[in-house]
Design a protein around this nucleic acid. Sequence first.
RNA 1: GUACCCGUAGCUCAGCUGGAUAGAGCGACUGCCUCCGGAGCAGUAGGUCGUGAGUUCGAAUCUCGCCGGGUACACCA
Length: 595
Amino acid sequence: MKFAFLADLSDFLQSQYGVSVPEIPVELCPPQFTGDITVNCFPLAKALRRNPMELAAALCTQLAGHRDIEAVSAVKAFVNITLRPAALMRDTVADRDALLAAVALPAVERRRVLIEFSAPNTNKPQHLGHVRNNTVGMATASILERAGHDVVRVNLVNDRGIHICKSMLAYQRFGAGVTPASSGKKGDHLVGDFYVAYDKELRQQLAALRQDKPALADKTDEELFLETEIGLAAQEMLRAWEQNDPAVRALWETMNQWVFDGFAITYRRMGVEFERTYLESQTYMLGKDIIRDGLERGVFKKRDDGAVIIEFDDPSLGTKVVLRSDGTSVYVTQDIGTTMLKQNDFQPDQQIWVVGDEQIRHFKVLFAILKALGYSWADQLTHMAYGMVNLPSGKMKSREGTVVDADELFDEMETLARDATVEKAGDDLPENLDERARVISMAALKFMLLKVNPKTTIMFDPQASIKFEGDTGPYVLYAYARICSMLRKAAAASDVTAGALDWSLLKEPAERTLALRCALYPELLQKAARDLDSSALAGYLLDLAKDFSGFYRNCPVLNAEDASLRTTRLALSETVRVILADGLQALTINTLESM
RNA sequence: GUACCCGUAGCUCAGCUGGAUAGAGCGACUGCCUCCGGAGCAGUAGGUCGUGAGUUCGAAUCUCGCCGGGUACACCA
């Protein structure tokens, strides 16, 4: 927040103590104290090497006569300031365009950021975990964009490998030629069914195997995989795929397309879009040449068994194989290759991966390798690690059928939102009922996921989480819709003469709080962008909506006692509306003018 | 075994570059629609911030130990 009196205060400190403090930080004054804003003198005193209490007293005396200040008091080391109404409003909300313009970072701080997220597999539909990834990825990208960065959204689809072959094999055996069209099933769900069918068959074969050969009974499923007929068949199919077997490739193309068609629908419902979608089938062979080059330069070394390795100085990273003894790639080799590819395609200043926190170590290793290879951009690589989504019953496990399917979840929430809308609407149902249900349900779901810190493990209780009251997306949407309703009525009431805008009329505590909250928006959005933390923005929007509700309750707008007050309160409301819209958009949440 | 993350109200979570009497929402209990939209507002009850030390004028916040929960430590992806 930039208040005019702060410049004078800064001059005072300069002349009095000979120390320049370019930015004096101010905070909102806690409600239990009298004042609008507070200067905390503890950090200030440390910088000036003064006694905090004495400094507070000195500032208090200095500010007492300031033209913008109505009252000032020092409590311990805190200077609580009550501003004159006109000054408070002038420095916060009076210039709406300036306030919104302050959201974007200065040009020198803007960067090109490439963000990769979603990364689904083409063997099953997306579940709640993907929904969190997609939501966090989109919101982070959008927040960065709002802060002025040039953002590139990228997806890397895992469309090859043994798990893909499993659903293909099951389809060959049990599919009987079914298609999404013939079954009326969404393509990704249809393919997912065959992945489940494969697993079921594998389990039966594993059980039979253990029965027949008691000597193998103690071995793990993984160890016995190639002992089963269907395990061997899947491996054989992967080999055929790698050798470009026409029949296998054709089936792969067909089934992948079904999945992509299904994903497109899921993504559209969520508003997820990418500038570029990379396919692992086209990138998995990348990275080897970089390893060879690094080997020649001595970054890597060849072990006795022929594997290429890197030995880190950092003992916690130890040694990592980057090329197998048979010369084939490992996971990190591919990631080295795709990182280079993205770097070459877009020349970003920073790359961000939105990937689950169980891969923290993998990315630590990846970044350390790229740094060892000497790339200048290697220390601008960021793993945005987010936590898992657990259910009250425990972890989501696809095998045990405890996953929350994305599409089903959207449907369920949409139904609940429609029911709630119908219930509140009473007799006259809105024409755009479906759209309202879509927007409200998606707002509820996204907001729930975005309001908690991305790195924490979420407990998702389907019963409790699908609420539209309290600290929720719909609560924020409701505040927005109320403002729209007021503005509509104001515009329609042509017989009411518009009063002159006069900010000095806004003296109520609720008005002051609301204006101050609005003024915090730019620094909050920038903080969310800097920390890659959507929850800071979500929390702010809730606070703003709450402050608006308090204002709405205490301060009549359309029914204000005079025309000037009405006009000015409407202007304040409009500012709140614009910030809510801006912030929700930064979270990729749509708004409704009525709900 | 080693490393990282987490432990705050009955539940779900904020607060964490140290700063005033630790905050929301849900749930429970009270009030508030002849007045701009009750998906709302106002209020009550509920916490020795896992635990024990340390650093400090000051610790939920920083450091260390311990307890409890999670994750990762492949020539799997």
